[in-house]
């Protein structure tokens, strides 16, 4: 076999990682298969549902469309990193201090407002909103809708998600 693997170095949830990845390896597979970060979900694997959303340098990205090698030198934050549990299976490492084991305000709000049912879309929704709060303090309903326009939820009808986002937007928290 021809050795075409790419040596990737980036950070995932604040932890520096270095890995050989195939050029066609998706970020989604790197996270779910190689790193056991299964909070990032496959819903369509076509960039349509947003269940696979992660933050790359603070911007929400579809992990099903992004190739692992494209993360070179960048910072990837998954839902696990947002809530601070970090790399659950990374041996010998512990989450960086900046990822305290505290739910993000949007995570608290989405539970408090009934913004989730089956929960399968929830990590992606939370990441999209976290990305929004990174850019915008106290976003409007329009900005919230714009930020979530790439996230599908089949259970909630989005009403609880909007309640949660409005609630969290009145207590913005710029982390991480």
């Amino acid at each position: 076999m021809i050795e075409t693997n790419f040596r990737l170095s980036c950070t995932v949830n604040g932890e520096p990682i270095e890995r050989l990845v195939q050029p066609a390896r998706r970020l989604l597979d790197l996270l779910r298969e190689d790193m056991d970060l299964t909070g990032t979900k496959p819903g369509c694997e076509a960039g349509r549902c947003g269940a696979c959303m992660v933050l790359v340098d603070g911007q929400p990205m579809n992990a099903c469309l992004m190739m692992a090698y494209q993360c070179e030198g960048r910072s990837v934050v998954t839902i696990e990193g947002l809530s601070g549990c970090g790399q659950r299976h990374a041996s010998g490492s512990h989450p960086a201090e900046s990822y305290a084991d505290e739910p993000h305000p949007i995570q608290r709000a989405i539970v408090a407002e009934g913004g989730l049912q089956c929960g399968y879309c929830t990590p992606g929704i939370v990441i999209s909103l976290a990305g929004l709060y990174n850019r915008t303090v106290a976003p409007s309903r329009e900005q919230i809708e714009e930020a979530l326009s790439g996230n599908l939820c089949r259970c909630t009808g989005y009403e609880g998600i909007i309640r949660a986002a409005m609630r969290a937007s009145s207590h913005p928290d710029p982390t991480p």
Binding site: S83, P103, Q107, R108, V111, G114, L116, G119, T122, V126
Partner: peptide, 16 residues
């Protein structure tokens, strides 16, 4: 009442 399984779902920790 908040769903008992809500926090784990929102944290991406619930294993499907």
């Amino acid at each position: 009442m908040e769903r008992p399984d809500g926090a784990a779902k929102a944290a991406g920790k619930l294993v499907y």
